[in-house]
Design a binder for these strands. Sequence first.
DNA 1: CAATTTACTTCACCTATGTTAATTATTGAA
DNA 2: TTCAATAATTAACATAGGTGAAGTAAATTG
Lengths: 187, 187
Amino acid sequence: MEAFRNFLNKYTSIPENEWQQIWSAFEMKKFRKNEMILSEGQICRFFYFMELGMIRFFINNDGEEITKFFTVAPYCFTSKESFRNQKPATENIQALENIVAWQINLGQANKLLKLKSWESFTRKFMHEVQTYTEELLLESKTQTAEQRYFNLQQKYPELINKIPLKHLASFLGIAPQSLSRIRNRNK
Amino acid sequence: MEAFRNFLNKYTSIPENEWQQIWSAFEMKKFRKNEMILSEGQICRFFYFMELGMIRFFINNDGEEITKFFTVAPYCFTSKESFRNQKPATENIQALENIVAWQINLGQANKLLKLKSWESFTRKFMHEVQTYTEELLLESKTQTAEQRYFNLQQKYPELINKIPLKHLASFLGIAPQSLSRIRNRNK
DNA sequence: CAATTTACTTCACCTATGTTAATTATTGAA
DNA sequence: TTCAATAATTAACATAGGTGAAGTAAATTG
């Protein structure tokens, strides 16, 4: 849990007594490489802190999987719409490596909102996710797939080597063959 | 202010006494067509409810304006990062029509967070904006500019006729000439 | 209202990425 | 360890959208 505490502290300071309440509301959960953490149509019951590993979010677009995001530990994740409203998810979450995570259900999470530190963390975290999403959208308008591939390589060098390239291509919004071409051009 | 109350009520129910506190914290503000509501480098001092009109968010990408979003009344807007942290904005906001809006500064907005209804509204509103941004990102991966143009036309028919097409093209991530071609192809 | 600027369109040519198909490399299960 | 499945690459051709240069239409401004 020390990793979680450090993570939260990057957003807001957590008094000792509030930290006790926070961490005791979470329980540990492991997933194995390639395991589905959430499948379309299921209700996402938990908000997770991922201590180790990485995941991908994807949807099905008539038979073709479109990768929406990657999340690399240490980071929090959930299927937002599904979790908040406890309704069937329209997206899938899959472990790309063995995962060590901590989970909390919606009822518990809502209770924690009474804590100033938790309320502040969730608010700032949501803002960060929003900012990140807007950045991706802007990059999709202003940069070629090639540029975005190199950006990604610079920002997350570990990621490129661990993820099947077809998922990377899908995340970049191009065909696997096009990613191959880009990589080959710059060999 | 009735429009604002109706707007808030779509997200969460507002008890009368809380509504009093909310509305008395806002003041009216008008902008004229083409006026800059916020320029890059300025600090965004307000969160707005726009009762009438429409705006665009854009950034400067070496000399070229890239439209990030449109917002059509009735809706709330602000330059999120700049407003929350009271730091210089990296984006511009411009009135596309004459605007009637209501504004609140950060201090007042933070005070309102004590109200359960306001806290709930801002949280749900942020979620909605996040969902919308993710949708746009997904569409940019799965659809051609032509498809996205027609979607936009269906969802916001008024918008297409009121906005300079160059802004529309920029929002879609294509050159004005390409939008012309698309429109011409389907005449 | 005329003059000027700005927006929009059209065209010819160019480039990045898509598509289909085949080949090779890698992974994972029996 | 081998075989079968999956992933990645390569190549030839197709297409959506970019670019630069006109020309035309519309909107602002004096």
